[in-house]
Amino acid sequence: MSFPPVLRGPAFGSYAPDEVGWLLTDLSDVPLEAPTEEREEAVQSGGAHYAESLPQEFQPDESYLQLYHRALATSAGRIAHAVGTVAELILAERGRDVVLVSLARAGTPVGVLLRRWAAARHGLDLPHYAVSIVRGRGIDPVAMAWLAAHHDPATVVFVDGWTGKGAITRELAAALAGSPFDPTLAVLADPGRCTPVFGTREDWLIPSACLNSTVSGLVSRTVLNDRLIKPGMFHGAKFYAELAAADVSNAFLDTVTAAFDQVGPTPPPADRTVDHAGWAAVDRIVDEYGIGDPNLVKPGVGETTRVLLRRVPWRVLVRAGAPADDLAHVLLLAEQRGVPVEEVAELPYSCIGLIHPRYTRGATGADGYAVTGRAR
């Protein structure tokens, strides 16, 4: 079987060519961006899948960028510790010849950091690739075939940034059922309690969640559109080379890598039980707020940020007493978009983003968005 070429920087993406190979199709010249409201209406009406188009890239203002830089400066040490914890778990349990496969794009900076830790602490040169996984469509089968043809599937470790309610861990397990790949997902933060390989289960900010392509190698989220992706092709993505002046991808990596020296022993977490408590919490919120669709509930700091950057947000739930530094950018985005913020006494996450249920463009509701049907 012949395969498409592996994409590498600087021709695709701003990461160094040895840090990641993208198992993706370059769609940089294809106009795929659509206004947020148009995408939301099409997705919720069933007229389109979210992966068929791209959101318009968020361009942060100076106040938001200052929040990002402050968050990175204050959290680099704990991110480095989480990277070390995950890396040591992987090497202890899966061996020293592992192949890192990050889920593009939020997982890709984490895959690079894990690779750097293995090099710095163990002298290893681990292969690292980024692949696409799409909710409801599974992981890219051509990428999986490429990996099976070039590496022992038993050595492949899948990597992501964080878990929300656990939808991607379920998608990965379903897509790889019966295959030679181990679907266990390694993440920095697992507030959803849906994987045994994690750096923390606290729901704190991973600053790479604050931005889009400019902290992820200038690569878009992945695209699966049958008009463009034909049989035998990898899923697609765009390289936003025109945003190079705003790119902080490598600065993010270098800041966290510089904190590796501050990290002492990284024993495995004492409790690695998987109980999917996050999904149970989402089900309660679906019922309480009359949302009807758990896909419209995005729990955790990272997922709430995505709601505010890419979707039509309805409201943000914030846990009473959650660390202010982890929520500063969320509160700023909510204020800028006019999204109500509710403080909730007991949440298993620092915050939860709710996408507007039954959204349609047209007559505007009291909170600035149109609704059809009952949503309270």
Rank of each mutant, 00 (worst) to 15 (best):
D26A: 03
P10V: 09
V142E: 15
H69T: 12
G192C: 02
A237V: 06
D26W: 03
G95E: 10
T360S: 12
L205R: 02
S2V: 14
L185A: 08
E288L: 11
T184I: 04
C194L: 01
I168T: 15
P268M: 10
Y349H: 00
D226A: 13
D140K: 09
T214V: 07
P109Q: 01
P4Q: 15
Y289F: 15
V371W: 04
E88R: 15
E343F: 12
V187E: 11
A174Q: 13
L317F: 12
A71F: 04
V159G: 03
D326E: 00
V86S: 01
R284S: 01
P183G: 05
F234T: 08
L309P: 04
T372E: 14
T155P: 04
P10Y: 12
A149K: 03
H276T: 00
N225L: 06
V20D: 15
H69L: 10
A48D: 13
W22Q: 02
L331Q: 15
L331G: 02
N250P: 04
R315H: 10
S220K: 14
Y68M: 10
A175M: 09
A80V: 09
F3P: 14
S350Y: 12
A87M: 00
A82W: 03
Q336M: 13
P31F: 05
P127M: 04
L113D: 06
L54I: 09
P207A: 00
V134E: 11
F252E: 05
D26G: 04
F12L: 11
N212K: 10
V248K: 00
V30H: 01
D61R: 04
A51V: 12
T195H: 02
P17L: 01
G164I: 04
T372K: 09
L67E: 05
H128F: 10
V83W: 01
A370H: 13
I285M: 09
T266P: 07
I90C: 01
A334V: 02
E62H: 11
T214E: 06
D125K: 09
L23V: 06
Y68F: 15
W279I: 01
L327A: 07
A328L: 07
L126C: 02
S63P: 00
R358E: 10
G321Q: 03
Q66E: 15
A189H: 13
F158V: 08
R337C: 03
Y240P: 01
A258E: 03
A366W: 11
H151Q: 12
A237W: 00
F260K: 02
V223W: 06
V316M: 08
D182L: 11
V197C: 11
A259R: 13
L7Q: 13
L332F: 10
L224K: 14
P5C: 10
L24Q: 05
A258M: 00
E41I: 10
G232L: 12
A177W: 06
T273Q: 13
L228F: 14
C210G: 00
R135V: 13
A154P: 04
P299L: 02
G365R: 01
A177D: 15
R78F: 08
V248E: 10
A324G: 03
H122N: 06
L308S: 10
L176Q: 11
V286E: 11
A73I: 05
P265T: 09
A42E: 06
V101M: 04
A270Y: 09
V110N: 02
A258S: 06
A175K: 07
V316F: 04
F234I: 08
A48L: 11
G9W: 12
F239G: 02
Y50P: 13
A51C: 08
I90E: 05
A104H: 03
S53W: 14
D18W: 09
